[in-house]
Design a binder for these strands. Structure first.
Lengths: 168, 168
DNA sequence: GCTTTTCCGACCGCATTGGTAGGATTACCC
DNA sequence: GGGTAATCCTACCAATGCGGTCGGAAAAGC
């Protein structure tokens, strides 16, 4: 059960954009070098974020990407949704908060028997969505800056990661 | 972002076992026919649940599986963990609540830079785990029995699924 | 016109998933 | 003891999706 690297890279991209002081666009090349991510792959990811209206692009030399909105107004649920396509705990789980019908399983129609797992996936889905919607890009940027104050060793070994605790 | 059908089928299997009135073992063949699941695949799934101590098997004729514990004492976090192997929102996310170290990303070690997404995946992971750990098999069984009282039509179309609401 | 950038579509190797096949082993029952 | 119903176990397989590459077109600055 995992998100793909699209979500990972996409969020890293956004954070990097958000860290930029000015409003000038940043090229993907710069970001791919800074983060160690493949440029060609990043392009496709950036395209998804652009289509979702999270990011705006300027073509041509000295062009690049910049955030389309204030980082505090960008929540992770919309970001991850844009990147992953759907956010569902199970293949047969059709989201729908948009489309007004209840959540439904693909095999609900075979006779009225609601499959027993629906309650479980509903809860998991809710948990994920709550976590995503409750996290803004601004928080992640702040975390990336001030969060891991502990240099190196303490972050790797040692009991509960000290800096994280307060952010949960 | 999905769980695989192993989790789905495994939970369905457990629910079916829990619905059985007596303590007599039920054969997988019976369950595979009742739920419409491939027998050979179910066998492998049942093996996982047995190894995890959730289910007990009796071999030979008139044998089968039965729950190893009271349904109220079986939480979904242990079930899904047994079926899926790991429960993590991202490939680089090493769980560890067992091993005493903080959560760590596979690319944490490359220079002290905690990747910015860690906070996000921590929250998502927490949300999923809370949903899983907070759901017992007993609840799912009860839901499968009394939950979907609404026959057919209302479950498929029509606004928020009425029966679900109270169980969230 | 050259360079830097976004844009776009096709392609590809690889791992995992979902499932099958075939048999060995155990135990009940006549 | 022999048939039969069940768990067990290992190997195999097709399809899919993921992560990534390649090549080029279009736009904009210098």
């Amino acid at each position: 059960m995992i998100f793909t690297t699209k979500a990972e890279y996409g969020v890293r991209l956004l954070v990097e954009l958000g860290r930029q002081p000015s409003d000038q666009p940043v090229s993907l090349k710069a970001i791919s070098e800074a983060e160690g991510l493949p440029l060609a792959y990043l392009e496709r990811i950036a395209a998804l974020l652009k289509k979702a209206g999270v990011v705006a692009a300027t073509r041509g030399a000295h062009g690049g990407y910049r955030l389309a909105r204030d980082p505090a107004a960008i929540t992770m649920d919309e970001v991850v949704l844009a990147l992953e396509g759907v956010v569902a705990p199970m293949a047969c789980f059709i989201d729908d908060s948009t489309s007004e019908r209840g959540v439904l399983c693909s095999h609900t129609d075979d006779g009225g028997e609601t499959c027993a797992t629906k309650l479980l996936w509903m809860r998991v889905h809710g948990g994920v969505l709550r976590a995503l919607a409750g996290t803004t890009l601004a928080e992640l940027i702040a975390f990336a800056d001030h969060g891991p104050t502990v240099p190196t060793a303490a972050t790797i070994s040692g009991a509960p990661p000290p800096a994280l605790q307060s952010h949960l």
